[in-house]
Simulated assay, not measured.
Amino acid sequence: MGNPHLLVVPYPAQGHVIPFMELSQNLAKQGIKISFVNTEFNHKRVIDALGKKLDENGLLHLVSVPDGLEDGEDRNQIGNLTERLCQVMPGQLKELIDKVNGSDDDKISCVLADISLGLAFDVAAEQGIPTAGLWPASIS
């Protein structure tokens, strides 16, 4: 087996994505390969905001999956967003894991997911991949 390779899956909201991104950048600096999963909508926002400053050593890879919402739908409607994510994201994550593990020497060794996205833990368990959970909320 190659180097550790984490699939990082934050809930697609600012207070979740940013802490997960900061953690991922720090892990990549330690030599851990990261595949960071954003929704397509947030993926574009992260690229626009961070661009090339994202990863100095080439270990942090951004990937995206659909969120199930149509263009123009309000992504601040958390109930609707969560419902759609639960419908589309499990299949998308499974496809992503299969694709990475089928073509990469550094197979995904752990899924680090937002505690609020239980579906990511279910997909990882089905694939036999260990998981770790993170709750990025502030304690203040």
Rank of each mutant, 00 (worst) to 15 (best):
A49E: 09
A49G: 02
E56G: 12
K53W: 09
E83Q: 06
F36S: 02
F41L: 02
P130M: 11
L54R: 13
K53N: 15
G91P: 04
G31V: 07
H61K: 15
A28F: 08
F36L: 10
S140N: 09
H61S: 13
D106K: 14
I47F: 07
G51N: 06
V111R: 07
D98H: 13
A28V: 08
F36C: 07
A124K: 10
L6N: 04
K99D: 10
K44F: 04
G68P: 00
N3R: 14
P4Y: 11
L59C: 11
T82C: 01
L96F: 06
C110F: 13
V123R: 05
K33W: 06
Q87K: 08
F20N: 04
L54P: 05
I32V: 15
F41C: 01
T131S: 14
L117C: 15
I129T: 02
Q14E: 00
S64R: 14
Q25P: 01
N38S: 06
G58A: 04
Q87R: 05
S109N: 13
W135L: 03
V100A: 03
G118T: 10
V17F: 01
G118C: 11
L134P: 01
A113F: 07
L96A: 04
V123H: 11
T131H: 09
L62T: 08
H16V: 04
E126M: 14
I78S: 00
T131C: 14
I139L: 14
E126C: 12
I115L: 13
H43L: 04
I139H: 12
A124R: 04
P10S: 03
V9T: 04
Q25C: 09
G102K: 11
H43A: 04
K44Y: 03
P130H: 10
L62I: 12
G51S: 11
V37Q: 05
K33G: 04
N101I: 09
E83R: 03
Q25Y: 03
S138K: 11
S116G: 00
V46S: 10
V46I: 15
G68K: 02
S116C: 04
G72Y: 02
D114T: 08
I34Q: 07
P19Y: 09
Q127A: 14
V9A: 06
K52S: 15
L59I: 11
E126T: 06
G72C: 09
A13I: 09
I18T: 14
A49W: 00
I47M: 10
R84Q: 03
V88E: 00
G118N: 12
A49D: 05
K44M: 03
Q92H: 15
G31K: 13
F41T: 05
W135P: 02
C86N: 10
A28G: 07
A125P: 01
W135Q: 07
D55I: 01
N80G: 01
I47T: 10
A132K: 05
S138Y: 10
W135I: 03
N57T: 10
I34G: 08
E126D: 15
E70L: 13
A125L: 12
V111S: 12
